[in-house]
Write a protein that binds this DNA or RNA. Sequence first.
DNA 1: CTGTTAGCGCCTTCAT
DNA 2: ATGAAGGCGCTAACAG
Lengths: 351, 351
Amino acid sequence: MARVTISDVARRAGVSPTTVSFTFNRPWELSPETVRRVLETSRELGYAPNPHAKALLSSRSGVLGLLVPESITDAFANPFYSCFVQGVGRVCNERELSMMIVSPIDESIGEAITRAPADGFVVVGLGEDHEDIAPLARRGVPFVVVDGTSEYAPSVNVEDERGAYEAAAFILSHGHEDVLLMSFLKPERYRDDPYRDVGQRRMAGYRRAFEEAGAGWEEGHVLDVPCSFEGGRRCMLELWRAGRRPTALICMSDAAALGALLAARELGLRVPEDLEVVGFDDIPAARISHPPLSTVRQPTVEKGAAAANLLVRAIEGEDVAQEHVVLPATLVLRGSTRSKKGAPAKAPGLP
Amino acid sequence: MARVTISDVARRAGVSPTTVSFTFNRPWELSPETVRRVLETSRELGYAPNPHAKALLSSRSGVLGLLVPESITDAFANPFYSCFVQGVGRVCNERELSMMIVSPIDESIGEAITRAPADGFVVVGLGEDHEDIAPLARRGVPFVVVDGTSEYAPSVNVEDERGAYEAAAFILSHGHEDVLLMSFLKPERYRDDPYRDVGQRRMAGYRRAFEEAGAGWEEGHVLDVPCSFEGGRRCMLELWRAGRRPTALICMSDAAALGALLAARELGLRVPEDLEVVGFDDIPAARISHPPLSTVRQPTVEKGAAAANLLVRAIEGEDVAQEHVVLPATLVLRGSTRSKKGAPAKAPGLP
DNA sequence: CTGTTAGCGCCTTCAT
DNA sequence: ATGAAGGCGCTAACAG
């Protein structure tokens, strides 16, 4: 419907299309008077340069693609993404760019990528060797891997293994009988799972803690839980109904942890006395809950910003292939876990 | 860098560009053998149709624009947006569309709009008569107004006034001395504020409740608070330090309310005994807090989906200009407010 | 300082 | 079933 083109304006203003183009792109090379007239005519006609045409010509759309390996709905049910997006958004604002969320079209990530008019992609949860990601490299489309393994493409990750280890080691130091792990890894289709890499790293950290603590590692103790409040809540409710009585929960996401916490309250459990809970991410809501959630903090906003910055540089032609950022992960203790001694940890701000 | 074009493939496969195009767009009109060969060559060469060229030709990019009147960072600091995005995303998934977040470029919304390769916009928090939005109508770009006033463009809103009224009336029925309002309206630049319309409607609801209750309405009782946990928290802390001692807080957003709740805990206040708090939105985190937050529920995900659906229909050429959706807002009472009798409301799930 | 010309990569009649 | 030609709207040489 954007029918009014550059030549409409040109004709109406009594100049050539080039002049109109110049008015918008290099006004300083035109007489002020001409610029004024063209601008006025443009406004009258409601003209605006067609972004598609510009993009075709310059092969630049000014859009950063944020590729998530699941539906947008599932992704944003996890507050982690709100934080990550804030980081990407910060860079977009600075660089006058836009951001588009790209999620699988009709199950196909590759299809979504080809259709997306983006200048490059921040790829979350997928490694560079994923069958839908690898073609990007071949086609020379800039991309940055986040939370995934990558050797030839730039990447941003956090110390998943160490963070997870610390969380589990802390919990295990309290001498629990029955510790449950809430993972987001679907055991049945382990290999094809997005987030496989992060998941495995965190799992490795947990496992190491278990081994060092001499605690038994049983597959039956790891549960597959969606990364959302509801996911965690439902899982907790169900396992309880099934007769399981864990005394500690180690979760790969705060979303699941907070949901489980809610369920625990609904079940009348005291946290951390009856049940200890530790999460991963440190989303803002982790401080809001009661008791506030102990968790492994990752600098999510910075992570998003780092990825976006790398992508921008790649788009601008810089060779950033060898940049592999690893951000710190740190255990932050709040009220949902007991203190080292076994007594409830002091909940900051609580009388 | 996506140098490999349709004619490269054509040459390599020994066919004409048209044939390649047909392979991708109307394969049924080609011999299966040809299709196979072209497809194979494409894969070899790493060819993918250029989305910019396609968009230019068809004036369709398959992208829905989500226009927010603030920086992406500020927007996503409010979990409300995560929910809204989920709704928009649901429709995107169904229709094989992508979503792009468009936020002011260099302070200018109009600039951001012109640059965005989107097929239409979901405009949040701005009315159709806003100086940067109005041109869309003139240029025939489809858009849907959300949380803003609109007569000629389709819109999606909720019963802000009624919801706000109910919340305030409920609080006031408890006979408070000092009730504070946390608004997101900047008093100094009232007229230019995005979210002015929603803000004013909610304010009108509060005000009506105050008048009916015979409670004094003083401008000094309405505070301007950013829509984020931190915003609410900081505001509460500051007003306390300034010596104010409200016994009830009525907030225009859950984000601010939950932040204030956190601050109240840090200050050693008992909620709802010492301080009642009610929010607006009913974001998922509202159930997570302690006590769980009483609030005015708006169906945020549905709101996003409704807006996106309207936009899709508009893009497809349907005339939806007269569709003005108004979604219900309902007061949901949880633990952060006292029950009608003046005793603390029973916090569901708490022993 | 301004106009003319030639594509960017693709899709779609129209021929063959 | 396949090929040739034109144009979507814009910008960047190159004239003038």
